[in-house]
Design a protein around this nucleic acid. Structure first.
Lengths: 191, 191, 191, 191
DNA sequence: AATGAATGAGTGTTCATTCAT
DNA sequence: AATGAATGAACACTCATTCAT
């Protein structure tokens, strides 16, 4: 699907993002998106092949942002714990600036149906770098000898969990700051 | 007669569970449940006020199972690490015996709309016990001084993550056994 | 699809027949049928699985009428030409009483897509009888030695053609009566 | 420049012919035509006023071919039966060379809506000639005294019927050759 | 308690047509 | 002449929910 008027394309993506986050996947509909952005529903089908195409495009849009951000912040030249701190801080900053993006990424990943339509991200350059970094530390015995897939998942969900508790107001940033995650995560990750 | 009613109630709950897990929340419908269990769709409305009521009831049904199981296995008389090991092993056993239950609990929690309808579980007896146990350990300086809500969340998602990776075949139990979670989790939890 | 309220079922069939004949297959829609008979469109789907199911059912409804009529009139005990005359007269009478039926049968047969969904009628008892009658006459050299399928087709389309020209007012029954078909058809059929 | 325009015009007609024959009238759409011939959908509206105009133009295109062909083959100088034989053979040859054309002519004629938009062909020179020829034979008592409109219709549908049965493989040319039509048709037509 | 029937609202998708460029 | 964009209307089909029996 060639991008036609970039402005309109983004308008739809942004509208879809809002509907997705307020309604959830279950009741997301193109009609609601169209109404929100004041556009005819049929015009959405000029820009996207079908509903799934729209949803996947929304996901990709936010994932690209996320990946670019991570890549810009990645600096493995420091000590392992400093790298972890840096990573957590970066994620926190990204979440502050792009709250929607992280939520969309998380949301779409939860749907088995959509997950199948989403391209694997693991091959992306930045993730390859992170995996290699972890791998070399594991060989030096500095990282726990568990599957990298599992370790990175744990770190990610530890951070996301924090954000979700903040969002649902079950936790406040006074009770616990993001930096306080680093120590337990460090204990979990490093030997 | 009363027995027959309970039978029908459970029939609906079980049908709904299957549809929920095979279809996902997005395309779950009472029609599909009715067809699956060979019952008239309108009869579902005799047992449940509406669709959301059914979904919440399904959630509660599995959550009760889960809570009963945990309560039966809970034994805080041993050392903290032994308690953690015991907890993880119990969860694993529950997951093996009641795969559906854990998945339903996880699935329903993902929906913002449904989460609001679900009663807080924290007041349940078993969770009160666990929280008290953690609290006392924290006072003795044996558990990291982080909000208990966050710590328990971390443990739960570490275990769920493991199950999910197994299910999606991104991980095999050969590469990593459930027991191997205990050491990193212990490091994360205990000082 | 079990017939539920026969009255409603027939109401839908009749409405669909009217729409089919006035609109043609190309612009036939369940919405138009529903509006015509003052019924909710969704209720049509209680009685018919889908649009094609409705169309095929309409066809079958009229075909059954037609077959019953033919069977009642069939009498091969007379001379070949008398049988032909009888047949043509019967068809004419049926057409007078059930104009819609013959048109629907013809219309639906023209659609390649629908033809596939329609059960072969050739096995029907009355057609088996007609074929056997023709076959035996052929063996006696009284009927032209052409494929029976083709001969019967010719007779049927000769009659239908006549009705169509009347309907489109390109011909009037004054210019030509139905009985006048018999002589040329007889010449065509019999040696 | 003008040549290019005619090229495009024909491109559309040919594309429309293909869609018409593969999809049928019911699901024919300008979008499908545009996609097939790799042209913008809106450009079709430069050449044709609307969808019906396109369909009628397609019909006329093939009808012209057909009429030209008939005119070229028409030779009333021989005996009536020879003329009939000649006519049937010509139709068969035309069908072999221009299968699409005959099918389109037949297809469009089936639609009540389109039939109204189609110009009467009877005034065309070649048909005038054929009618005059039949008329004069009728006056000599050599052709059955039935409306010419009906007789010509019968001949045409006898031939088309044959082609249709071949196409639908309900008949093979081994079982019956086109020439075998002539004898019964002759009996039907001539006294 | 159980069911069949009915309906209104919604949903994804297609399409004919128009318009500005 | 050609095209991309936009739109409103239509359509098949699904579904939650209600009601009478």
């Amino acid at each position: 699907m060639k991008i036609k008027t970039e402005e309109q394309y983004n308008k739809i993506i942004n509208g879809a993002t809002i509907i997705l986050l307020t309604e959830g996947l279950a009741t997301f509909s193109t009609i609601k998106v169209a109404k929100l952005i004041n556009m005819s529903q049929s015009n959405i089908y000029v820009y996207f092949k079908n509903k799934d195409d729209l949803l996947v495009s929304v996901f990709r849009y936010h994932q690209k942002k996320y990946i670019h951000f991570l890549a810009a912040k990645w600096d493995p030249s420091r000590s392992p714990k400093a790298v972890l701190t840096n990573f957590v801080t970066a994620l926190n900053q990204f979440h502050t600036d792009n709250k929607d993006s992280l939520e969309v990424i998380w949301l779409v990943r939860q749907s088995p149906k959509l997950r199948q339509l989403i391209p694997q991200v693991a091959d992306d350059e930045i993730f390859v770098k992170i995996f290699k970094w972890l791998e070399s530390l594991q060989k030096q015995g500095k990282v726990r000898p568990l599957p990298l897939m599992y370790l990175t998942n744990l770190v990610f969900s530890a951070v996301i969990n924090y954000f979700q508790l903040l969002d649902s107001q079950e936790l406040t940033s006074n009770e616990m700051s993001i930096e306080e995650i680093v120590t337990p995560l460090s204990a979990l990750l490093f030997v």
